[in-house]
Design a protein around this nucleic acid. Structure first.
Lengths: 206, 206
DNA sequence: GTAGCATTTAAACGCTCGTTTTACCTACGA
DNA sequence: TCGTAGGTAAAACGAGCGTTTAAATGCTAC
């Protein structure tokens, strides 16, 4: 299934994403990755130079798109007559949800992203901050406008909590298991609904 | 510093905790652990049987205490005249805060715990569920009593979100940095305050 | 058709991994 | 004092790791 329609590089990225999500960056070996991708072991070093660089490319492939979708969703939300907190939260959360539902490994990627947070890797944090910082600033400003009574620092705290809960929920850390008869998509959508409702109330806390 | 006052087992547990927090379970080798603990390489397999078992013991050492403290704090909260959600959340969150401030590695442990969530390791999940599931059940019952209008499943979802946000906050995943002039303790306490206020509002959401 | 480049392949490199083995120390009860 | 059990020590085990090499193959432009 993975063999014919995609290039060697693409197959390696896809397999790496799956295995990094399941086993971690240190836990997944290049032999496992190349076997899953049905390519030769040396292909990783030929196309990506090193395992470290392969990890970075796994991130880059997804983050640019997620980034753009969030800003686009925010723009659209702000065009509505009276956008509320739930609209803004949706603009932040739904693109992540869409990504996690994406056919072709997005669900694995959000788990990879959660692992990256847990790794506490400074180089990776800088990469994320450099590439995502402006998005968070943009959202912060939008939320601040809708929460004029909230102290600016307090808002930072609360958005940080929202980001944490989102990471946690999207990566399926939680103990809540999908019930039989509920599709993966329905489960994720319900996750997002609960998360948005919870986060909106949390942001509005006195 | 690590050499004289503690037994070999205790030194291994301490060093393993630090290195698992920094490098992950797969990333930290037994050679690194035993070198940091200043013990012989074979000591891990002699005292713990295997690396896998060492990991479990790292958890057991802290979680027994943490969950005992949580249950104790819950008991005390329920003895008050009119315990509210904030009291219950405090009983759940504050022991974790105390642990993270504990001299002697508690701060490292909460990062280990966060990694465990990210790892999604089934064996570890079963271990946690088997040994500490009753604590979550106890808290769930206490919250349910104070939120009679909330659907039971809805409450599960929300408590799951709270646990996620707590894990995230305690492990210092967030982007909020401690300001100069604010001690680590103050920073953590402020984290807990924000988290409790946010979570209480989230739980009360319509 | 063939030269030239990009890609794939199989094999090997040196190294580190978790674990096991075997010998040695040390303290304590008989 | 000696035997013994509990702990430590150094060394080695086979396996797997990321990476490199060099030969084989595929593909395009002439």
């Amino acid at each position: 299934m993975n063999s014919q329609h995609f290039s060697t590089k693409e197959r390696i990225l896809g397999a790496a994403e799956q295995l990094f999500a399941r086993l971690g960056f240190a836990g997944a070996s290049l032999r496992q990755v190349t076997a899953a991708a049905n390519v030769n072991l040396a292909a990783v070093n030929y196309h990506f130079g090193s395992k470290e660089n392969l990890i970075n490319e796994v991130f880059r492939r997804r983050l640019d798109e997620l980034n753009a979708h969030r800003l686009q969703a925010l723009e659209e939300a702000l065009k509505r007559p009276a956008p509320d907190l739930e609209d803004l939260l949706g603009a932040f959360i739904n693109p992540a949800l869409d990504l996690s539902l994406d056919r072709g490994g997005g669900g694995a990627f959000v788990r990879v992203l959660a692992r990256a947070y847990a790794e506490h890797n400074d180089a990776l944090r800088k990469f994320l901050s450099d590439n995502y910082g402006h998005v968070m600033k943009r959202f912060h400003a939008a939320f601040a406008q809708r929460l004029p009574d909230l102290d600016k620092e307090e808002l930072y705290w609360r958005l940080d909590i929202v980001a944490g809960a989102l990471t946690y929920a999207m990566a399926d850390f939680g103990v809540i298991k999908r019930k039989t008869g509920v599709t993966e998509q329905q489960h994720r959508e319900r996750s997002a609904e609960h998360l948005i409702r919870f986060a909106a109330a949390g942001l509005r806390a006195p």
